[in-house]
Amino acid sequence: MSNNGAPKQSFSFADPDKVQNILSQYPDKQSALLPLLHLAQSEEGYISSAVIDTISEIVDCHQALVMDCVSFYTMLYTKPHGRHIIQVCQTLSCSLNGADGLVDHVTAKCGIKPGETTDDNRFTLMKVECLGSCGTAPVVQVNNDYHESLTLEEFEKLLESLK
């Protein structure tokens, strides 16, 4: 769940056992960085500076290194997003199958452009690159779920269903 309130001063993982389990899988600590960032984001909704502090302590490396990583990967967010992150694939096969229309539809219906979040925090719209499912273009990922071979009508229904 997203935490859209004021940034927390400190962060600790919900389940320390999960953290230990991740660390124990790798021969060195820093390799656990991405999995810990994923875990933190699934708990907090984004990577806050408090998360960065906590993780840099756990893996025993400088905060700058953690931040460097966070800024490199598009799936790691440095600010809160809407409850439903609508990620429309814009790469060639999807584009040839109507992806642009899907983006325009969200913009027309919800008043947000790619990168923006609705005022009620319901949706964030993003354009993303090839999702590895070009045979079922156009593809939209909402949070963790793929929605494939979408017509405009199905997309409309999907948006309605996301509260």
């Binding site: 899988q25 820093q30 960085l33 991405l34 960032l37 460097d68 990967y73 799936m75 690159e129 090839c130």
Partner: peptide, 29 residues
């Protein structure tokens, strides 16, 4: 043999084998 599943985080270049290795080491790819 042990096997570990490691999730990437959205970066095409991490498919390139040495970018992938850097990423696995907890760095940018």
């Amino acid at each position: 043999l042990d096997v570990v599943i490691h999730r990437g985080a959205g970066a095409y270049i991490c498919g390139e084998e040495t970018g992938l290795i850097e990423s696995l080491e907890g760095k940018r790819g």
